[in-house]
Design a protein around this nucleic acid. Structure first.
Lengths: 130, 130
DNA sequence: GAGTTCCATGACCTATTGGTTATATAGGGC
DNA sequence: GCCCTATATAACCAATAGGTCATGGAACTC
């Protein structure tokens, strides 16, 4: 089995990763696993749904590479595998600069508008976004 | 209907945000919008799918608060709204510490294995996770 | 070996997703 | 007013998602 290579941010994984993260039950499961591995029944206990439903969620998480399955007697403890989270984070980081700059830029634009409106009385046509 | 409010980063939004990010077409659209606002037809152009399909994707992005709609003549230029991305990133950041530690731990384990294998010839039973 | 615990899987149901085509609406150019 | 461009919307369809209940199977307990 191959760890997602460092070199190949194969975007197919992002699909599965983000899809897995889109469900609150699954996010809660990951949160639980962040504090250590846990058996299926332990993971199921907080939720008002059947064990098979949890197993399905676990399968989704596993196919996204977000968890792995161990074995300990009858138990199949799940453990968090953070690599896909790292990959997803890297994708989002790509935008961090953007939104941070964005708020600064917004301020700048507002300043600019104040100045310009103080000078020119009427702006013109083809408005872009306000 | 108005601009997506600045105010409510409720966690219900994480569902919609991650779900929106789970599709490669939508991620590509966001990437495109990171370099400036664009009309629907501009956004649709790179893709081998119909305009209504793109409009549907845009609706998903909009309901997730990831984009907003402007108006310019007949055009309805979309603009990136990074706030939900920030929220998603914050959720993931929660795990950053975890996976960074994890890789350190992995290194440590690998070191350890090298040492141990140099000494003991055969390891044993009741494996928990490798 | 019989029962029990833990988990996985199959069959089923409904709602949602992601695409299609066809049509409607809104605004600008002439 | 008429047509063209840009976008939205409706109706439809197949596939997937997220649950259910029932059953199966592996591994411990006694």
């Amino acid at each position: 089995m191959e760890l997602t290579g460092y070199g190949s941010p194969s975007p197919g994984h992002l699909d599965a990763t983000f899809a897995a993260l889109a469900d609150p039950t699954r996010r809660a499961i990951l949160a639980r696993l962040a504090s250590g591995e846990a058996s299926v029944s332990e993971l199921a206990e907080p939720f008002a749904m059947s064990q098979p439903a949890i197993s399905k969620h676990l399968k989704v998480l596993e196919r996204a590479g977000l968890i792995s399955r161990g074995r300990d007697a009858q138990r199949r403890p799940r453990r968090l595998e953070a690599a896909p989270l790292a990959e997803a984070t890297r994708w989002l980081e790509h935008y961090r600069q953007f939104w941070e700059e964005n708020f600064q830029a917004l301020d700048a634009v507002l300043e600019d508008l104040k100045e310009q409106e103080a000078r020119r009385p009427t702006p013109r046509k083809r408005r872009k976004h306000p």
